[in-house]
Design a protein around this nucleic acid. Structure first.
Lengths: 169, 169
DNA sequence: CCTTGTTTGTTGTCGTTTCAACCAAATAGA
DNA sequence: TCTATTTGGTTGAAACGACAACAAACAAGG
């Protein structure tokens, strides 16, 4: 069938979203690298662990939450382990599985990095929007995620918000 | 000063946007790789050339529009040249500069890839939104770009929308 | 001109990601 | 029980991007 090209309104929205998609990761990554010596992905891995029960997660679960392939995660966790931020040990219940656990040092690293990261998110995104737009953004991205991730794999299943502080998603 | 942590509304919006940021590039890239043998970045380079006057752009200008470093672009264009999709020649007006020009074959590749890509953009993003939300998304991303790219470097300066078809941003 | 400095690209090296092969534990079937 | 398949994860080689070093052309002063 004939291609449904984009209307002018659609094109503007898409071009801008594509530009954000292109620029924002670099901004997030750059700040964390500069200030905390962590890539955004590394930070994200640590943050996911920080909000998990016992600060521990199986590699497969961690890969799902971070949208990483298992090989990629394996390499990254190895490096984090070498730096003392994470420790790995075989899962007691399943001999095949490996658990990754945040060390005290790793926790400290997340705690140290979180404020600057949040500050950056504010400066780059949230503070550019009025409260109404924040709500609209949540609805819009929610709808898009309905297409990209119907089962909500990446949205860490329920955060208890009662615990310490870090995490953020 | 004390960190201003995110409110619940802000956190939801941000977590979802972060998830979109994480998933969408992979979806766009995957479709183009599968169906057209092009990475999303390669497609984007070709698309930018396709809407330039004479389908030609200087490397520096192309790098700005694609938000790439010059070394990266140089490598990618070399590969595209090897595949016959682009040709390079020294700029007549400035001996230092190199022009990249889309070949006929390159044009054909963009024309062939564009419909599937647009279709994917619709399926993944636009069709998930009602018309009102499309407008909101344009406003929101516009505001964010005000922070990320105040000078509008990546938004290709004026598209003539009158020409052939491809391009898209 | 000759020198200094800046702009424009390319090339080489290194770290990271991806992909394919692999191993080991668990599970299912005969 | 013994084999076959599936699941969970690691490892090594190839591809790609980032950063630094470099070469060549322009520009500005003396």
């Amino acid at each position: 069938m004939a291609t449904r090209w984009l209307t002018d309104e659609e094109r503007v929205a898409w071009v801008r979203l594509a530009a954000v998609l292109e620029l924002l990761p670099g901004v997030l990554d750059g700040q964390l690298r500069r200030d905390d010596g962590l890539s955004h992905f590394e930070y994200f891995v640590l943050a996911m662990l920080s909000e998990a029960p016992d600060r521990t997660l199986r590699m497969t679960a961690l890969a799902a939450r971070t949208n990483a392939t298992l090989p990629r995660l394996s390499h990254v966790v190895k490096r984090l382990e070498d730096r003392g931020l994470v420790r790995r040990f075989p899962c007691p219940e399943d001999g095949r599985a490996t658990n990754a656990q945040l060390t005290g040092e790793g926790w400290d690293a997340v705690v140290a990095a979180a404020p600057g990261h949040v500050e950056n998110v504010r400066a780059s995104v949230l503070d550019a929007l009025d409260p109404e737009q924040v709500g609209q953004l949540a609805a819009i991205t929610g709808a898009i995620l309905g297409r990209l991730d119907p089962d909500g794999v990446v949205l860490s299943p329920q955060r208890d918000t009662g615990s310490g502080r870090p995490a953020e998603g």
